[in-house]
Design a protein around this nucleic acid. Sequence first.
DNA 1: ATGGGGCTTCCAGTCACCGGAAGGTCAAGG
DNA 2: CCTTGACCTTCCGGTGACTGGAAGCCCCAT
Lengths: 133, 133
Amino acid sequence: MNIGDVARRSGLPTKTIRYYEEIGFIRPKRLDNGYRDFDEAELHKLAFIGRARSLGFSVEDCRILLELYDDKSRASAVVKKVAEQNLKAIDAKIADLQAMRVTLSHLIDKCAGDHRPDCPILENLGKITTKDA
Amino acid sequence: MNIGDVARRSGLPTKTIRYYEEIGFIRPKRLDNGYRDFDEAELHKLAFIGRARSLGFSVEDCRILLELYDDKSRASAVVKKVAEQNLKAIDAKIADLQAMRVTLSHLIDKCAGDHRPDCPILENLGKITTKDA
DNA sequence: ATGGGGCTTCCAGTCACCGGAAGGTCAAGG
DNA sequence: CCTTGACCTTCCGGTGACTGGAAGCCCCAT
């Protein structure tokens, strides 16, 4: 299977697939002309990584998850722990963004948004909130 | 004012301040010994950038906001628009993360998380969801 | 044989910094 | 006067996870 077919079937760009080879996720054989030749197992692995990435797992998380996936005797608790850590990280990001959102939307609400130059948004950003030593 | 004082008063790391000089946000004078010498206006500007960054504005957004801040005759509508675009981007990120969160937490709930090897998390990641051409 | 797409490698760029090395400067203490 | 330690400087490289582009094969259909 050529890289283009794998890209279509996995949903990953060819650039990303080459990158995943570079960082050791896959080692496709080569044809005589130098083209990569993927088998179904590699396609499968790439699709796995793609799904995990879309759920917010880092590439290094994926490396761990792949190892766990291959190790059929590992306890599910181990996998669950990795997933829970990821969930925590996602929750923290959501909380950060929501805090931003609150402040920013307050600012936007207070701004008339007309032809006049007075703007509470800039005024607030301009406030020096230093901790004078 | 030395860079260390500015760092303490603005809350930005010295590395970041030097970086902001490099990309043209500020142009502090230099003392004979080569040290940067900041004035209050520069401190103010850095604090402004720091606050905007913490609200999710990109560095390029900050460049625009600074220009708008300096242009006392611009309409507040212009600023509001930039802020609203940022708010939209924040909302999109929150939505993405929440979608991830839902899927991942379902998966985690379904996983026993014990000594047994069966794990719905990995099983789901392993599902090939390709669009076979 | 020619054209167009697909494949290869390699280099550089993204974004917003951060870490560290090598070295100059300054104020205080012995 | 010397040392110590906290500053400051520049420069180089790295981060994460790709992405873009150039230069150049390769393959197939016309």
